[in-house]
Design a protein around this nucleic acid. Structure first.
Lengths: 218, 218
DNA sequence: CTACGATGTTAGATATACCTAACAAAATGT
DNA sequence: ACATTTTGTTAGGTATATCTAACATCGTAG
């Protein structure tokens, strides 16, 4: 049995390990707003449960079992977010905090039903992939808008949604998943981009914004 | 701030106090499957928080504040049950355990949205009243079927749903909220009733069943 | 290459929510 | 009315999850 607290550690480990595969105690501590000694002792506990590989002073790594369990928590989180948006009418900027709580519900049928009612979605409202029932992710490689060039036309496929402020900003600009963006020019000194989309012929997006928009080239 | 555990104690206190207004430590202990000493110490804690009136060796009583908080938890529980049945397609026998978990979600907008999507329901799928946003109950006085007499025609308005087995039994007999029952005779020696309803011309219901069906006379 | 800052661990304390064992009070039955 | 059973409390212990303070190791900059 994995406690609610342990679920949160696994989820954070997975999210931080996204690219590198390894995580520091310090990073994890900051992510969870939990002091380092507490993190160290939890890592020892999770190591005993064969959920993480832990050795003193070495970076943390999820075991296969740990990845699976983390995937299942993230599955519950993302299915919940999708349900809140698609079936309950919440905005994509409102759902993270609610899903953070609902994800800890222990009922397989509950999430299976959500999955079914949604038609077995593959991505959440922010474009992030929903792991399958074994906790496995179908990774999709997107480009950051900030890595694209003038003249290219791209489609917004996912957003990095660390803050609801960013999502509200996108709401104001009427940028959503699927929005087709044409890059008119890139300012080399600050990385900001002049783009057009829908009926906005010239809008400027800062580098900070462009880094958080994940796109596919047409 | 009221913890998840405290919420469970308040809910149990309210449910047991339904009629009497007073509850024993022993009763509460059995209801929650928590040993008496633990209950005693929790009562002292809840008394400090002004949620219960507690004196050694005296029966337990919720304060007004305690009743309100208990009402709010029960509101969340019953709104969840209604949502699970009406909007997600679960059976009334499946929803208690799921609602037991979802009720602890701390998000006012989440439950407000559920309330709105359901059209501000006054009763849950078992006919129990849903408290208002101040935790206040609109009490409805029903009769037990077991207190009715031969010749009377009644309508099922609520069920006492301590076990999902009872609800499955009612499913098999096709008895639901709203079913109109005609009492043909009452066996005086065991209190069982011969009744007719829908297209069942003569069905026998044991006293145990009749005690758990709450009805309104036509 | 050593010293210092960043990172990580150990030790010991706290709060919550549970337990058992032992004792105390209340209720009950003959 | 007193002995017994039921109910309730006290005392002390455990597990989880957190903290601070002090110490240890690592990595790097001078």
């Amino acid at each position: 049995m994995i406690s609610l607290t342990e679920e949160n550690y696994l989820k954070a480990l997975f999210n931080l390990a996204n690219h590198a595969g390894e995580v520091n105690v310090n990073e994890l501590s900051k992510q969870l707003s939990i002091k380092m000694p507490t993190v160290t002792s939890m890592m020892k506990k999770l190591a005993e449960k064969k959920l993480v590989h832990y050795e003193s002073y070495k970076p943390l790594r999820l075991t296969e079992k740990g990845k699976k369990e983390a995937g299942l928590v993230i599955r519950k989180h993302r299915l919940t977010e999708m349900f809140l948006v698609d079936k309950m009418g919440f905005g994509w900027e409102e759902v993270h905090d609610i899903a953070e709580q609902v994800e800890h519900v222990r009922s397989v049928v509950f999430f299976d039903k959500i999955d079914e009612l949604l038609g077995f979605p593959k991505i959440d409202p922010h474009g992030a992939p929903i792991p399958d029932k074994n906790g496995k992710f179908a990774w999709i490689a997107y480009d950051k808008l900030s890595d694209c060039h003038a003249g290219e036309t791209v489609r917004v496929s996912a957003v990095i949604h660390t803050s609801s402020e960013f999502l509200k900003f996108l709401n104001n600009r009427e940028i959503r998943l699927g929005t087709k963006i044409k890059i008119k020019s890139v300012e080399s000194f600050d990385g900001s981009m002049v783009v057009s989309y829908d009926n906005r012929s010239a809008d400027t997006l800062s580098h900070t914004v462009c880094e958080r928009l994940l796109v596919e080239k047409e």
